[in-house]
Amino acid sequence: MGSCDPPFQDFYKKLFDNEKINNNTTNVLDIVEERELPLIDLNRLNIQLEEENCKSDIVKASQELGFFQVINHGVSSEVLANMRCEQMKLFKRPFQEKANNCHPYLNCLATSYRWGTPTATCLKQISWSEAFHVPLTGISTTVEVSTLSATTKELVKKMYDLAQRLAEILAEQLGNKPAYFKETCSPTTCFLRLNRYPVCSVSPNVFGLMPHTDSDFLTILHQDQIGGLQLVKEGKWIGVKPNPNALIINIGDLLQAWSNNVYKSVEHRVIVNTYVERFSTAFFFCPSYDTMIQSDVENSVYRRFSFEEFRQQVEDDVKMHGQKIGLSRFNI
C-alpha cells in the first residue's frame, strides 16, 4: 500500500525552491499565548433559575469573541469517539485511493476529497492538510453499507439539533424570529468536514489551514488534544487550549451579516505540528443556496445577498487573489 500522506513537498517543489533561492525564511507563525475559550454548560438551559443567565453567556461570547465552547451539549462521548475512529481509518487509506475515490469505504458518503491549496502562489498560502467534505444530502438516503455512514448519520443529527438550539437563542436575543433557522437550514443543507493535518517538517513556513472566517451561520468543531487552533482577539493571535469534554462553537459570516455585526465571525487558522498529526471534525450550519441574507435593522451594513451568491464570490476571490475576502464584498 502507498503512503496515506498527500505529496505536499513534490507538488509545491517550485514554491519551496523559490523560498530557498530568495532566502525567504520568514516564519508565518507568531508566538502566541494559549487560552481557554469561554466554557458554557448547556445543562443550565434546563434549570429555570439559570436559563436566562446561560443564554446571556452564549450571546456575550458570540458578540465579544465569536468563539466559545460547550459541555453537556447532547453529543455523547461514545458517538464522538466512534466518529474519530472511523475518520482515522478513512484518512489512513493510501493517498491515491483517496484522491481517486476508488474504494467503497470512501464513496458510501458521496464525499469530496481535498488536500493542500491548488491556487497557492507562495508558501504562506499552502494549507498543509487534507479533508473529506461530506454533503449531508449524501447520507440522508444512503444504505447502511458501513459503520462510517451509520456513525456519521448519528453525529450529524445531534450536531444539527445543537446548532438549531444555539441559533434560536441568538435570534431571540436580537428580537428576531427563531423560526428563521428552521425554515432555511435543514440537515440536508448543512455539511460535515473531516480534517487531518499530517506531520509537517517545515511547519514554521506553512499553515495547517490558512487564516479565514467560516461561510456559514454556525460551526461546531470537535478537535483532538494536539492543539493548533488559533483565533484573532483584539488584533492578536491566541491559541485555543483543547478541552476533551467540550465542543467548540464559532460564529460564521452569514450570522454576522444577518445580525448586522452584533455577532462576530472571527478570523482563525490552524497550525500544524512537527511531530504529531492532528484530526478534527467540523459541522457547518448552512442554509439552502437560495436563502436570502438580510438584517432586519434599518441601517444595515450589508446589502441583501443569497447564500449561493456569497459562496460564488468566495470561490472567485480565492481563484483570483489566493484567499477569501468575505463580507466586505457585500458592504453597502
Score class of each variant (00 low, 15 high):
residue 117 T to V: 12
residue 264 K to A: 14
residue 233 K to F: 14
residue 252 G to V: 05
residue 13 K to F: 12
residue 223 Q to G: 13
residue 40 I to L: 00
residue 140 S to V: 14
residue 182 K to T: 12
residue 167 A to D: 04
residue 89 K to C: 04
residue 292 M to D: 03
residue 78 E to M: 08
residue 57 D to E: 15
residue 131 A to P: 00
residue 203 S to Y: 06
residue 268 H to T: 06
residue 134 V to M: 09
residue 331 N to F: 00
residue 4 C to Y: 08
residue 24 N to Y: 07
residue 31 I to M: 10
residue 79 V to T: 15
residue 109 L to M: 13
residue 324 K to P: 01
residue 249 I to A: 08
residue 1 M to P: 12
residue 272 V to N: 07
residue 20 K to R: 14
residue 181 F to Y: 13
residue 98 K to F: 07
residue 92 K to R: 11
residue 263 Y to G: 04
residue 200 C to I: 07
residue 65 L to A: 08
residue 138 G to D: 07
residue 288 S to E: 12
residue 106 L to T: 14
residue 242 P to F: 07
residue 180 Y to R: 09
residue 89 K to N: 12
residue 253 D to Q: 02
residue 87 Q to S: 13
residue 38 P to E: 03
residue 83 M to K: 08
residue 141 T to I: 02
residue 235 G to S: 09
residue 139 I to A: 00
residue 190 C to S: 09
residue 231 L to N: 01
residue 92 K to E: 12
residue 192 L to N: 10
residue 276 V to H: 11
residue 103 H to R: 07
residue 66 G to H: 10
residue 81 A to I: 09
residue 257 A to T: 03
residue 206 V to L: 09
residue 222 H to G: 12
residue 314 V to W: 02
residue 48 Q to A: 11
residue 171 A to N: 04
residue 276 V to R: 12
residue 266 V to E: 03
residue 99 A to Q: 02
residue 163 A to N: 09
residue 257 A to D: 04
residue 81 A to G: 05
residue 216 D to F: 06
residue 180 Y to F: 09
residue 153 K to W: 06
residue 293 I to F: 06
residue 64 E to C: 06
residue 191 F to I: 10
residue 122 C to T: 11
residue 18 N to T: 04
residue 129 S to T: 09
residue 87 Q to E: 15
residue 140 S to Q: 14
residue 212 H to S: 15
residue 88 M to P: 01
residue 55 K to S: 10
residue 30 D to F: 09
residue 45 L to Q: 01
residue 43 N to V: 00
residue 330 F to K: 01
residue 318 V to Q: 13
residue 306 S to H: 05
residue 186 S to L: 14
residue 251 I to K: 01
residue 60 K to Y: 08
residue 323 Q to V: 11
residue 95 F to L: 03
residue 309 E to V: 02
residue 298 E to Q: 02
residue 219 T to Y: 05
residue 102 C to A: 02
residue 285 F to I: 03
residue 272 V to S: 15
residue 188 T to P: 00
residue 112 S to M: 05
residue 319 K to I: 02
residue 217 F to Q: 04
residue 198 P to N: 05
residue 243 N to R: 08
residue 32 V to E: 06
residue 58 I to T: 02
residue 46 N to G: 06
residue 300 S to I: 00
residue 302 Y to P: 00
residue 91 F to E: 10
residue 197 Y to G: 08
residue 87 Q to L: 10
residue 231 L to I: 15
residue 81 A to F: 07
residue 45 L to R: 01
residue 1 M to A: 10
residue 255 L to I: 03
